[in-house]
């Protein structure tokens, strides 16, 4: 089962990076979302998969018989997802702001901080 998640994560990373390399800020964001989903899957798979046994104790605090799903990666993922959302939303805000300032979304033409060097400078 982990194998399938591993391949899925690899495929999503590939698609995500391809979008991030496209040079368009909006597509970069699309890629970022795919990438964060892929990374979450990878963390989940690295903690091993246990089918249908959420990490909940029985009333009274007894531990159910048999192996429960690993709680640690779940706790990490829960915050990672929310933080990832924060990152994504902030990036979206930046994108809108950039579009307002530049009038386009092509990253290679955004050179306010590092202007093109004049050629032939000795």
């Amino acid at each position: 089962m982990e194998t399938i998640l591993a391949i899925l994560a690899g495929a999503l990373v590939t698609a995500g990076l391809w979008l991030m390399l496209s040079g368009n800020l909006l597509r970069f964001l699309f890629g970022l979302m795919l990438l964060s989903n892929a990374v979450n899957l990878a963390i989940f798979a690295a903690g091993r998969l246990t089918e249908g046994r959420p990490p909940l104790l029985e009333p009274g605090g007894a531990r159910p018989v048999g192996e429960l799903a690993n709680a640690l990666p779940q706790a990490l993922l829960l915050t990672a997802i929310v933080i990832g959302f924060g990152l994504f939303a902030f990036a979206l805000a930046l994108t809108i702001r950039a579009y307002r300032s530049f009038g386009h979304l092509e990253v290679d033409r955004m050179r306010l901080a590092e202007p093109e060097e004049p050629r032939g400078e000795a």
């Binding site: 591993a6 994560a9 590939t14 990076l17």
Partner: peptide, 29 residues
């Protein structure tokens, strides 16, 4: 760009396969 993205994707898959080849450390869980 497909090539570059593919290299990273492949390395992610391989790392995961390598991780899951070892018995998990359930100490904290």
């Amino acid at each position: 760009h497909w090539g570059i993205a593919g290299i990273v994707g492949l390395s992610v898959t391989l790392i995961l396969l390598a991780i899951t080849a070892h018995p998990p450390d359930r100490q904290l869980a």
